[in-house]
Each structure stands twice: as C-alpha cells, then as structure tokens.
Amino acid sequence: MTLQDLQPGESGKILEFESSVRSERLMEMGMLPGVIVKVVRFAPLGDPIDLRVQGYHLSIRRDQAAKIHVSKCES
C-alpha cells in the first residue's frame, strides 16, 4: 500500500520510494524508510496532504504520496 491510501488520522511506516519520485528532498527532510508518518488531513480540495513527520507538519501532493510505499500502523 502507499501513503496515498491512508485516511486522515492513520499512520504508516515508510518502506521505500519509487524511483520516479524526487525522494532526496523528502528524505533530507526526514521522510526516511523506517520513519512513521501520520496523515493529518487533506486540503479542502482533496489535495495536497498534510502529514506529520518527525514532529512537524509537511505537505505533499497525493500523486507524490502514491509513490511512497508504507505499511499501515495499527494504533
């Protein structure tokens, strides 16, 4: 499953990035494999997504999220 499949309130552990997404910047900002991200909410028009990573809020688009594989965390 990918980050895009998570609903607001759900968390996932990052597994890997598809190579087509520009993952370097995201990784430099702390979105590394193994890190847990929480989907906080979707923007009013459904896109982008507000994520919580490493204690701060990061916003990315859904099509980028669709290229980040995660495993869902049970809370």
Binding site: M29, P48, D50, Y56, H57, L58, S59, R61
Partner: peptide, 11 residues
C-alpha cells in the same frame, strides 16, 4: 511536466 509541492507548514 507538473511541478512538485513539498512544503513545511509552520505552527
């Protein structure tokens, strides 16, 4: 192609 959007939302 389309641009990316990666932005930190400050408190």
């Amino acid at each position: 192609p389309d641009s990316y959007f990666v932005m930190e939302l400050p408190p």
